[in-house]
Amino acid sequence: MLAKRIIPCLDVKDGMTVKGTNFVNLRTAGDPVELGKAYSDNGADELCFLDITASYEGRKTFTNIVSRVAAEINIPFTVGGGIQEIRDVERLLNAGADKVSINSAAIYHPSLIDEIAQHFGSQVIVCAIDARNDADGWHCYTKGGRQRQELRLMDWAHEVQERGAGEILFTSMDHDGVKTGFANEALAELANRLSIPIIASGGAGEMSHFRDAFTLGHADAALAASVFHFGEIAIPELKQYLREENIPVRL
């Protein structure tokens, strides 16, 4: 049976992880490769590295990090942050990434999704959608959540699937950072309407939140950052717990 995936997300700035000081005993504090390896050894199913630097130099550093991850880590990983055009995708895939996550650029230039799918196949595209449940329903946001779009979550999610996205990484801005659980109703609607895998993001605070994202939200995978980085939830215990809750996980 296909396992539900647990994906730690690492924010990388100028080649160093931004969070993650409390996690295990690392030789070099803040080295994304070492942190990623520690997660991989602890049972993470995939890794996600987001480049939060904007500068050209920062992007070059990030590409080097991606190469090192590819050389040293033996589980799949997604990279994202600042991808604007197909050349960025090519650079990151050539460095050894398995998948790329695109966000704002897909909303501004939807044909980018078609283009990536044609060149590299749908399996490399994770379309990240940041959305908020406003008074008039779920809307997409760009620019790190600062810019509201008239585009509705369900319409956009359907469109990216039709254009060839392989997976959707859905972050509920209402839930992100609040640690009260994932946006399970919206997740379930996405899972019921779409045929591609949905990755839940935003809201993890306790182990039961992951269970609910899978049982109530029908998510295929769940992504989190701070609960893992600050050692609040350890992945081996989380997976043991999920297995006891009858959720298929890789142990």
Partner: peptide, 16 residues
């Protein structure tokens, strides 16, 4: 060929 809605194609992830 999917039998139910939950059968997603491609199969992506860890299986035993």
């Amino acid at each position: 060929s999917p039998k139910v809605h939950e059968d997603k194609v491609p199969q992506m992830g860890w299986n035993s």
